[in-house]
């Protein structure tokens, strides 16, 4: 699997990196189950509060990758980005289970120069006092141009990347952020090739196949951290269609000692599921802590 390291300036990324905020990123496939290898799945991609109601920000389909059941790379077709919603098609032209989504890794945090606190990476925080350049640019106004507390007197309080942290920084606190989002679509019999764990970070290792979920059957999903069953992973499960009921009806669940999450589905439908965990074992040694999340959209059929 490829890990894309990107700058964390995008609003989409900030929604992913901070699950506590209500804005949620989501991919919504038209179906997860297809007969034959002659079919397409069409996917909506957006960021919004309510699932799956696109009313806030589109997600750029360019961020999305496709993994075919045999491990080869699939293709996005007809990608477009609208006002509220990105959309794309994928030809599901090989039998088995496909994965559509993204993996991202980034580092952010804080440091001090003298007594002033600086941030690394953009998390929606204002770039700085008046006169500072736009968010996170390492160019003019950054440490390279005058330096923190430099001659300008009103430096911005943010640098774009870890590489921009000046030599005289103190109290450096950095956190690695690994986020992934995946949806699964099966043609004919579901397979598990695209679900093979890599042994890195937080991973989804389902016992119940994600394309074989039924509302009257409990689903069992194992979560792994660095390849080992992860106890105590917090998982939020939310049915789509909040507009048509009184409450969000989110379930806040936790994996057991065996790393297994057990989910009962209140109704059939499309669900958003997001798991998150934190530890102090970042893969990047410059960071002290690691925040991980795995998010998926799951289709649960009526019995």
């Amino acid at each position: 699997m490829r890990f894309r390291t990107i700058m964390i300036a995008a609003a989409v990324s900030s929604a992913l990196a901070t699950p506590a905020l209500a804005h949620r990123m989501w991919l919504l496939p038209s179906t997860t189950t297809l007969a034959g290898t002659n079919e397409y799945v069409t996917v909506d991609a957006a960021v919004s509060n309510d699932l799956f109601y696109p009313d806030h920000m589109p997600m750029d389909p360019a961020q999305v990758s496709v993994w075919a059941p045999d491990g080869s790379e699939g293709k996005l077709e007809n990608a477009s980005k609208g006002r509220y919603r990105g959309t794309f098609d994928v030809a599901i032209n090989k039998p088995g289970t496909w994965k559509i989504g993204m993996n991202r890794s980034s580092i952010g945090g804080t440091f001090k120069v003298g007594t002033e606190e600086w941030r690394v990476g953009g998390r929606g925080r204002p770039a700085g006092p008046p006169g500072a350049p736009g968010a996170g640019g390492p160019g003019a106004g950054g440490p390279g141009a005058g330096g923190p507390g430099g001659a300008g007197g009103q430096p911005p309080r943010m640098v774009a990347t870890v590489a921009d942290i000046p030599a005289n920084a103190t109290a450096i606190k950095l956190s690695e952020s690994q986020t992934s989002y995946a949806i699964y679509v099966s043609s004919d019999a579901p397979t598990k090739g695209v679900l093979t764990p890599t042994g890195k970070g937080l991973e989804f290792d389902p016992i119940t196949h994600p394309d074989a979920l039924v509302s009257d059957e409990e689903a069992q999903f194992r979560f792994l951290i660095d390849g080992k069953p992860a106890a105590g992973v917090k998982v939020t499960v939310i049915p789509g269609g909040k507009k048509y009921r009184e409450a969000e009806d989110a379930q806040e669940l936790t994996t057991g000692a065996d790393g297994v999450l057990r989910i009962k589905w209140p109704v059939a439908g499309m669900y958003w599921m997001s798991a998150s965990a934190e530890d102090n074992k970042p893969s990047d040694k410059r960071a002290q802590t690691r925040r991980m999340s795995f998010t998926s959209t799951l289709e649960v059929v009526a019995p």
Binding site: T33, L34, A35, G36, N38, E39, A212, V214, V301, A302, P303
Partner: peptide
């Protein structure tokens, strides 16, 4: 064959 999956329980 496209709609065989509509027999969703049998399909599964």
């Amino acid at each position: 064959t496209k709609w065989l999956a509509d027999l969703r329980t049998w399909w599964r």
